[in-house]
Nucleic acid binder design. Structure first.
Lengths: 125, 125
DNA sequence: CCACTAAGAATATCTTAGCCT
DNA sequence: AGGCTAAGATATTCTTAGTGG
């Protein structure tokens, strides 16, 4: 069985742009503890798992790697997603992203994200 | 926080008309261990939680008492595009893109797309 | 038979301190 | 700063043996 919990946790944490120390502080944990979770060397207890899921608004099934949909229960989110989907579908410039990004290297995505931040920042000034 | 895990586990086990001993045997556990789970005196590890959920065909969110629907996932068929898009918005690292791109300037999107082509080309060589 | 309890043994976890990049 | 590793201290879990309905 492939361990996905660590990857999921790390991905969620970094998506919030938090360090392990910052994240740990929210739950009264040392940074090394978070690191061990993310490397699948330790497991939190159920209480913490529940808190993590609440904090990120995802299902525990997603955190544990049982399913690939973060929060399959929220209905309003679904319709909002469908709206976004229509926009992506109708704009050729956007299609390449939703088709290619999910299968791309983490590093490549990270580069793209940084460049995107750069573009937005440049156009503001 | 009310502990529901024990109740859920016991309910599922008895619904299968199994004794604690029989159930424990399926997972290599002593009967007293099952009893302790059901009284919320002990917790299984993630691997066991996963196995229990699989065995009963329920979500871990249900087992943990986060939701009241045993298995809320609907396995609908989706178009290829929809599937790709689903993967796209399931990845927390990509959320910034699907949230911002549809509402961004055409020019910015074009720049981003060109940079993306550059990244891909660079990594090939 | 079935479930619960107690207690020691076996496992797993958490933190601190140090190290690396 | 951010993340990783080691190791002792701490905390939890699992089983066996025994009790009682």
């Amino acid at each position: 069985m492939i361990e996905l919990f660590g990857k999921r946790l790390k991905s969620l944490r970094t998506s919030k742009k938090m360090s392990q120390k910052e994240f740990g502080k929210l739950f009264g944990l040392a940074e090394s503890t978070i690191g061990m979770y993310e490397r699948d060397e330790r497991r939190p207890d159920f209480e913490l798992l529940n808190k993590f899921a609440n904090y990120f608004d995802v299902s525990t099934d997603y955190l544990l790697g049982r399913i690939d949909t973060p929060n399959p229960y929220s209905q309003e989110k679904k319709s909002a997603d469908e709206e976004a989907f229509q926009k992506f579908l109708n704009d050729p410039n956007l299609q390449v992203f939703y088709k290619e990004l999910p299968n791309s290297e983490e590093e490549e995505i990270e580069m793209l994200r940084e460049f995107w931040e750069f573009i937005k920042h440049k156009n503001k000034t």
